[in-house]
Amino acid sequence: MSATVTRKRAAKKPSAKKKKVVAKTTGKKATTKRPAGNKRAAKKTTARNKPKTTPKKAAAKTSAGRRRKPPGTSTSTQVGARNLTARAAEVRAQRRQRRRSVVIVLAAITVTAAGAIGAIRSPLLDIDGAVVIGASEVSVEEIQQAAAVPIGTSMVDLNPGIIAARVESIPTIRSANVRRGWDGVVRIEVIEREPTLALKTPAGFVLVDDDGRQVRTSEVLPDGFLPVIGLQASGVAGDPAPPGSSSVLRLMEAMTAPVRQEVSEVIVTGAEIALTLTDGGRAVFGDDREIEAKVVSLETLLLSVDMRCVHEIDLTVPSAPALSRIGEKGNPRDGLADLTKCS
């Protein structure tokens, strides 16, 4: 009987596959009961994973689950208040120190400024006199009179630009430089105008500088100058040179030493320029176009051609100069064979 009952119970137990099918049809998860030993292991695991609470933290909790304020809060607040008070006192001390520094600096500046003003207005800085440097054609007295340096006034009040402009108003002065001297002396350094042309006039010569300004007059021709004939100058120092002077100035600037030695005078007729040669004859330049090339062409002829019996050298076309000679009876004739009759 017992064997028969056991077989029936075994037959009634559903298989694992049937349990899965039932779970799928009902939509519920199949749960399996854990043995009692597993529950104990789970409890132990949960107890291990729980965070440990220290006695202090546990004591801090109230029955309502809130934390109490940690002890000593009032003491830390007092310490913070003391620190703020000390910091405020330190800031006030720094501000007072800065104010003192500013006051000291301002006082020093005031004292220095007062001393400087007193020194500037001291009689030790008064103007005692003026000296002139670089004058040769113009007298020192004339320059000092034109400068009108205020003797006895403070050197600080002197305006060098105004003094220089007064000196430069003298026609023969090109430029002036005025410098203060803290020894009480004003120094006036001048550069005079250098004449480069001597224009022939009935009374003598008018000297003109390279700026085209009449500098002064002279009764005789200065050494090293070529007389320029045909330009009418006023003869008043400081006046501009007459028209045509600029062309002659360009010619003089371009003229080389070999050419200058063979020239005795410069003749200006309207816009035409010609040179009188020392051996006789003349060199015709025409107008002032290509004047540098004309000088080079003339120099080439003077160095390579026998200049005896030369009547005229036409340089109006500098690349093709034309030379004519004087005949036996004084008539110009090209290609004179016998040059001994002109020597």
Rank of each mutant, 00 (worst) to 15 (best):
A198S: 13
V185C: 09
L226F: 12
L221T: 13
P202L: 15
A198E: 10
G235W: 07
V236M: 04
D211N: 14
V178G: 02
I188K: 12
K200G: 05
G204L: 10
V220P: 00
A198K: 11
V236E: 11
V220D: 06
I188M: 10
I170N: 00
E194K: 14
W182M: 12
R174S: 09
V206C: 09
V208N: 01
E189D: 11
Q214V: 14
P227I: 01
K200R: 15
R166V: 07
T196A: 04
G235L: 04
V186M: 06
L226Q: 07
E219K: 09
D223M: 10
D183K: 11
A165G: 06
E168V: 05
R166S: 08
L231W: 00
R174Q: 12
D211Q: 15
V215C: 00
E192N: 13
P227V: 03
K200N: 13
R179L: 06
L197C: 08
D211K: 14
P195M: 13
T196Y: 02
R193M: 03
A203T: 15
V178H: 01
D209C: 02
E192V: 13
G184Y: 04
R174Y: 09
G204V: 13
V185I: 15
S234Y: 04
G230R: 14
I188R: 12
A176Y: 01
V220R: 07
W182Y: 14
A176T: 02
D183A: 08
P222Y: 11
G212S: 11
P202Q: 15
G184C: 12
T217C: 09
L231G: 01
A203W: 14
L207F: 09
P222Q: 12
